[in-house]
Amino acid sequence: MNDSSVLSAWRSGDGSLSGVLAEDATFSSPVADYEGQPNASHVLGLIAGVLEGVDQTGAWGDEREGVYAFTARVDDREVQGIVREERAETGELTHVTLFLRPYGVLRTAIGRMREALEHSPLPARA
């Protein structure tokens, strides 16, 4: 199993994944679903600015579906997470789901994402 495309992008500081996401991709965050490549790519890119020190700690699955465990930091507090990546036969990501814990750090991350989306709104209407 390969490394997570999402976690690799976040580690690089550019989580947009525009070249990896299918046109009809969906990103399911802990708060909302973002439909379509432009919106999913945009939100995934913003998350790269909220999570620091992303480190993949586990991986399960195959070439069509992978589940990846990771740790990161949000404002100097550790967060643990899971990213689930579903792929089409072509290899493009069709659905990405993010789970984060603990709740207190998740709330901080949600606040930082709200601010990021206020400064950089979604590119496409949902």
Rank of each mutant, 00 (worst) to 15 (best):
L7W: 07
R114N: 11
V20I: 12
L51T: 00
T94A: 04
W60S: 13
S29H: 00
Q80L: 14
V105R: 01
R107Y: 08
P30T: 02
E86Q: 12
E92F: 07
H95Q: 13
L44T: 03
A25C: 06
A32Q: 14
G58V: 08
N2M: 14
E85T: 06
S28F: 05
V54Y: 00
A25S: 11
G49A: 04
T90G: 15
A69I: 03
A109Q: 02
W10R: 02
Q80T: 14
R73E: 15
L7D: 01
Q80C: 11
D55S: 11
L46G: 05
R107F: 08
L98E: 02
F99I: 06
D3H: 12
Q56H: 03
R64H: 14
Y34N: 00
E118F: 08
L51G: 02
E23D: 15
W60K: 15
G36D: 00
V83C: 01
D14W: 08
L7V: 02
G91D: 07
A40H: 04
H119I: 03
E89D: 15
L93Y: 00
T71K: 13
R77G: 13
S8D: 12
V31R: 12
E63C: 13
D33C: 09
E89W: 14
V79I: 13
G49N: 09
R114Y: 12
T97Q: 06
Y34W: 09
S5A: 14
D24I: 05
S5H: 11
I47M: 10
R101G: 10
N39H: 00
E92N: 10
L106R: 07
D33K: 02
E78V: 15
F70M: 04
M1Y: 13
T71V: 14
G19S: 10
G45F: 02
W60A: 14
Y68H: 05
H119W: 08
V31K: 06
E118G: 13
A25R: 00
G45N: 03
F70N: 02
A9N: 04
E78F: 14
Q56F: 03
E85H: 04
Q56T: 07
L106S: 06
T94I: 07
S8G: 09
G15L: 04
T108D: 10
Q37A: 13
S16K: 08
G111N: 07
Q56Y: 05
L106V: 11
D14Q: 08
L106H: 06
Y34T: 00
S4A: 09
V96G: 03
S29K: 01
Y34C: 00
S29A: 09
L122N: 04
L100G: 06
D14T: 05
S4C: 13
V31H: 11
V31W: 12
D62F: 07
V79T: 04
A69K: 04
L21S: 01
E23Q: 13
R11H: 06
R84D: 09
E63P: 12
G15I: 00
A116H: 05
G49M: 08
L122A: 07
R112P: 02
L44Q: 05
E92W: 06
Q37S: 11
A59M: 14
S4H: 08
R11W: 03
A72Q: 01
I110Q: 11
D76S: 13
R64G: 15
I47F: 06
Q56L: 04
S18L: 15
A40D: 00
S18K: 12
G53A: 06
R87M: 11
D75K: 09
T71E: 12
Q56S: 07
